[in-house]
């Protein structure tokens, strides 16, 4: 590797390694792990299997990706049907635009205020589901 490196930042040092010999550097490791001291001691076989891309591992990953994609996809469909259908609605039924609630025209409420709580709600729902998929995946891998 290039010769002019300065050891001023020992913590971020990158060591050229032969993978066969796991050269351990305990003090360096300490600095970077800052949060989430996860108790997952079961590094275990499944993770190695994932990394080695055995058929089992690959199947696991595929099913995770598929589950996540399905969730995202259906959320997007929901978004399209709720919000992105409004212009068409206003176009097809112009009289819809003349309705009034509380002295304000309905379209102004529908376009000016209502989408934002809806978007946030969709977001919350999605994050919950996505994180549940991930928890399921982790617990499956751990056992």
């Amino acid at each position: 590797m290039t010769g002019d490196r300065e050891p001023a930042k020992p913590s971020t040092e990158l060591v050229p390694v032969e993978p066969a010999q796991p050269q351990r550097k305990p003090p360096r490791r300490k600095k970077v792990v800052l949060a989430e001291a996860k108790g997952s001691r079961t590094v275990a076989r499944t993770i190695v299997e994932l990394e080695e891309q055995t058929s089992v591992g690959e199947h696991l990953v595929r099913s995770l990706v598929w589950a996540q994609f399905r969730t995202s996809f259906w959320m997007a469909i929901l978004l399209i049907f709720t919000i992105a259908s409004l212009p068409l609605l206003f176009f097809l039924f112009p009289s819809f635009g003349d309705l009034t609630i509380f002295g304000i025209r309905l379209p102004w409420v529908l376009l000016g205020a209502l989408p934002y709580p809806l978007l946030y709600g969709l977001g919350v729902w999605y994050v919950r589901r996505a994180e549940r998929h991930e928890r399921d995946f982790v617990s499956m891998v751990d056992h």
């Binding site: 002019d4 490196r5 040092e13 993978p19 796991p22 970077v32 792990v33 997952s40 590094v43 190695v48």
Partner: peptide, 24 residues
Amino acid sequence: GEGQTDGRHRRLAIRPRLRSRRSS
């Protein structure tokens, strides 16, 4: 990490311990 600039990092060997989460 240490000022190297080779830009290609395909050297991800399989390691028995993969728990180190981040820059370590």
